[in-house]
Write a protein that binds this DNA or RNA. Structure first.
Length: 299
DNA sequence: AAGTCTCACAACCGCGTGGAT
DNA sequence: CATCCACGCGGTTGTGAGACT
């Protein structure tokens, strides 16, 4: 079966773009704006598929693209973000104004993945500056070295939907119950979420205890709730020192399902954070504006 | 100087997602 | 609700250029 191609490849140019094609595309977008990529080649008179046009524009022709070497600040930021987000190149790129996901992905694959794994093997070794690692010294010819997984110690997935169910062990909860919010899930100003969680669960536990029958709660039960309503702010403010612990803090046991994802963030949340940070002037300021969970938790 | 190797990066490809109908 | 379509994303490949022998 397979998916039908995005466009007919017949009679279309492929490979490197010529200066003329670049000019045609740039001029067309200046006049008509971005979007409607599928029809763009026909309207602009280009013998390219829309997908190719979009990629060329986004990765190369866009006026706000910052070309040139990646600075040490940017590099550190990429490393930290990659530890947090994994191969979410577009999200990482969103934190680096003027840089594209493709550029960051390539830079990671050719420079950083190797260096990060080296650093993990010998943490004391100083990190090389970007240029020193370029041509001839990086020593990583692994075009497939996409860096997925190996260096991502605490990768945060950004889909909240998968975490809509939590498995609660009532015994564990009652043993660890603390009227005050726990250190992992609170102490950052607004405790509303933690309170809400406790308020929500305590009556359930109390009811069971008051009935004097713990038998009927002797087994775990599932509990539906909306992640966004309870824990997002706590997650954002957490130090992520132990993602698994944080995941089901306050004594909640994790689901018995082995494939239960650790922590799921909403894309919304990360985008909001990303967008806000993009107004900063430099990578250095971005670095300073990183939320605590990057600055403190991942290292 | 010529051939080969290695690296960096642009471009391609397939799939997932979300909006429109 | 189902289907289609456009777009975006991440993985992979192709290629040009510098380094090396």
């Amino acid at each position: 079966m397979g998916r039908s191609p995005c466009c007919s490849k017949e009679g279309l140019n492929r490979g490197a773009w010529t200066a003329l094609e670049d000019k045609i595309l740039t001029d067309h977008i200046k006049v008509h704006g971005e979007g409607r990529w599928r029809n763009l080649p026909k309207r602009a008179g280009l013998k390219r598929c829309g997908k190719s046009c979009r990629l060329r524009w986004l990765n190369y022709l866009r006026p706000d693209i910052k070309r040139g070497n990646i600075s040490a600040d940017e590099e550190e930021l990429i490393i930290k973000l990659h530890k947090l987000l994994g191969n979410r190149w577009s999200l990482i790129a969103g934190r680096l104004p003027g840089r594209t996901d493709n550029e960051i992905k390539n830079y990671w694959n050719t420079n950083l993945s190797k260096r990060v794994s080296d650093r993990q093997k010998s943490p004391a070794a100083p990190s090389k500056k970007p240029e020193a690692a370029r041509r001839g010294t990086a020593g990583n010819g692994n075009a497939n070295g996409n860096g997925s997984g190996s260096s991502s110690t605490h990768v945060v997935r950004t889909r909240a939907t998968r975490c809509s169910k939590v498995f609660i062990n009532p015994h564990h909860y009652t043993q660890n119950r603390d009227p005050k919010p726990s250190s992992t899930c609170s102490n950052h100003g607004d405790h509303q979420e933690s309170k809400t969680m406790n308020e929500l669960l305590l009556p359930i536990m109390s009811e069971s205890e008051n009935e004097g029958t713990t038998d009927h709660i002797s087994s775990d039960f599932t509990f539906d709730f909306n992640m966004g309503e309870f824990c997002l702010s706590d997650l954002l403010n957490s130090d992520f020192c132990d993602v698994n612990e944080l995941n089901y803090s306050n004594g909640f046991d994790s689901s018995p399902s082995p494939d239960q994802p650790p922590v799921d963030f909403s894309d919304e949340m990360l985008k909001e954070w990303t967008t806000a940070a993009c107004s900063h002037q430099s990578a250095a300021s971005n670095l300073q504006s990183l939320p605590p969970f990057i600055e403190n938790g991942i290292e």
